[in-house]
Amino acid sequence: MIPSLRLDPRAKLVIVICISTLAVFLEKLSFMLALLVATLLVAWLFQLHSSRSIGRIKKVLSVIIFIAMLQSLFTNAGTPLLSIGHITIISTYGLQRGVGVLLRISIIVLSAALLTTSSSRDIVQGLIQWKMPYELAFMVSIGIRFLPLLAEEIQDTFVALQLRGVELKKIPMKRKIKTYSYLLMPMVSSVLIKGRELSMAMELRAFRAYPERSSLRTLKMKHMDYAFILLSLSLTSAVFYIYMHY
């Protein structure tokens, strides 16, 4: 096993942007498959635990199958693979589009997971050193930090409801939607209270005292970081060139 690459978060960001841009731009399955292999290689280089990313992709698999079916139902292109009467359920075109979406999502999720190998503080610091306004970079970091807390809050509200004897799995859809609407208000109010307390804590620690702020840590790019940025940009340009001309 090779030692884990310790790159500046900005270099990782460039790699992620390059991979994601290619994933969005490329249409041909062969190119996308090659890009997925390249992304897996990068993930291996950074010793990224891909199992969590694969778990996330699994969750959207049903959506991808649904997209494949929609593409088959509403376009006449391709050879029908499964049909009921005159209605095509799955066609080669739909299947191709579905696989395309699956590959695209897999590449984006895997590449974005590269950023989890840096702390959110380092990413924010990197963005600030790239002259991004601090408030904006901080907002992103706070969003990431509070998402699990919000998920926990929603989970708690559901548990509280179930403890009152409401079995969400057994009640009909119409009542289920009505019940969810009841939960919306306490959840929104709890989020607002959390947000207000957080803003008070920040303001009382001199947030935005001056237009600029200093930093305990400063990130410094090394030769290796520049090499990876250059390599990523060159490879992305090369792939674009090949894709457009061949």
Binding site: S119, R121, S141, R145, E212, R213, S215, L216
Partner: peptide, 26 residues
Amino acid sequence: NQLFSPTVEDEIAFGPENLCLPQPEI
């Protein structure tokens, strides 16, 4: 609801950083 940084060090440094104090002082 008061702690929002990924490490304890960052949490403590947040206030002094906002005051634009030099790095050794932070």
